[in-house]
């Protein structure tokens, strides 16, 4: 039951030769799908945190300015 189906790396990459493209295309799409759905939320989170930090800094600056004016 636990036997390697390929004897060499090139044989593995060939996947039997006839449908190399089909099989690897499916696995490539899967890799893209996994990475996008893990990385996209991280980007959104990063963007959100930067935005909120900028806003907080601006608010602080604004309030300190009004204080000096008074």
């Amino acid at each position: 039951m636990f036997e390697f189906q390929f004897s060499s790396l090139s044989e593995f990459l060939q996947m039997g030769g006839v449908y190399t493209f089909h099989i690897w295309a499916v696995y490539l799409l899967f890799a893209v799908f996994i990475s996008y759905n893990l990385l996209q939320p991280r980007m959104v989170r990063r963007h959100f945190l930067l935005e909120q930090k900028r806003r907080a800094a601006r608010d602080e600056e604004l309030s300190s300015k009004t204080k000096t004016q008074n």
Binding site: Y19, I23, Y27
Partner: peptide
């Protein structure tokens, strides 16, 4: 799925597509 699963008697190596298609 990529290395151990034996070739299918009809589909050959293409059976490996199943291990992505069916879960998804």
């Amino acid at each position: 799925a990529l290395l151990i699963v034996p070739e299918d008697y009809q589909q050959g190596q293409t059976i490996r597509i199943m291990y992505i298609h069916v879960p998804v």
